[in-house]
């Protein structure tokens, strides 16, 4: 890959109890690009994604070996504060998970926990984030309504706004459209397109067309291994590995 890397993994192995979920995965994620991870269910793509903000820490009996660096700093180093790491690496989940609070409070939550108290500044951040996530016009009249009243697609964009409000460097997206209808999906995909100007986006998807549409780079994973990784066009048109070609052409998966 020619672009400068923001995240690099080197020989990462991960076990849930005795079961190995990742096998010596080495990948470079280029800065300010969209990278997608594809592969059949259970291939470890979501697990890899959750390594980048150390969300796997929450799960019992997980063991990780190997090295993951963000901006050349080892994210597992004792000097790394996991809270600071997660502030730099935001995440959008498979199912929209707005907090049971108002729309405003959902977006303001991140800045608040990071110490922003000034009301005017919060207002500004909330509006900017909602605009950036292309949902401002739909919710500006009802910022104080519960976020749970929004549609699934709106909730997901709200969750993206919530992530943007913390000004991360990287945004992880774990099948962000899997529970959405085609129209909402199109909106999110457009959004991802614009996000890469300011952010690095890593998206896990089981939808190959989506990967082809939105990403600059694509990694194909199978049974916990990274089989192949490269420019999206190359992966989809001239895959080097037979496994990749079989998957892309729909022979399994």
């Amino acid at each position: 890959m020619s672009d400068a890397a923001i995240i690099t993994t080197n020989n990462v192995n991960l076990w849930y109890n005795e079961k190995q979920a990742l096998q010596s995965v080495s990948i470079k994620i280029p800065k300010n690009r969209v990278t997608s991870l594809i592969g059949p269910s259970g291939c470890g793509k979501s697990t890899l994604l959750r390594c980048f903000n150390r969300l796997n820490d929450l799960i019992d009996h997980v063991k990780i070996t190997g090295e993951i660096t963000l901006d050349d700093e080892n994210i597992h180093a004792p000097s790394t504060d996991v809270v600071t790491l997660r502030k730099k690496v935001g995440m959008v989940f498979q199912k929209p998970n707005p907090f049971p609070k108002t729309i405003y409070e959902n977006v303001a939550y991140g800045p608040r926990v990071h110490g922003v108290r000034d009301k005017a500044e919060l207002d500004k951040i909330v509006e900017q984030s909602l605009r950036h996530a292309a949902i401002w016009d739909e919710v500006k009249e009802r910022l104080n309504d519960s976020a749970l009243g929004l549609s699934g697609g709106q909730q997901q964009r709200l969750c993206i706004a919530r992530t943007l409000a913390v000004e991360p460097e990287v945004i992880l997206m774990d099948e962000p459209c899997s529970s959405l209808d085609p129209i909402a999906t199109a909106k999110i995909e457009n959004l991802i397109e614009r996000l890469k100007e300011d952010y690095t986006v890593i998206i896990v998807t089981h939808n190959m067309q989506q990967a082809a549409r939105v990403s600059d780079y694509t990694g194909f994973m199978y049974l916990g291994k990274l089989i192949e990784c490269g420019k999206t066009g190359q992966i989809f048109e001239h895959p080097k590995e037979e496994l990749t070609e079989n998957y892309i052409t729909g022979r399994f998966g």
Partner: peptide, 17 residues
């Protein structure tokens, strides 16, 4: 739901927050 905890932690909130 666990997803709420993950959502908050992913924003860089501390555990107590």
């Amino acid at each position: 739901p666990q997803s709420l905890r993950e959502g908050s932690l992913a924003l860089g909130a501390t555990q107590w927050q």
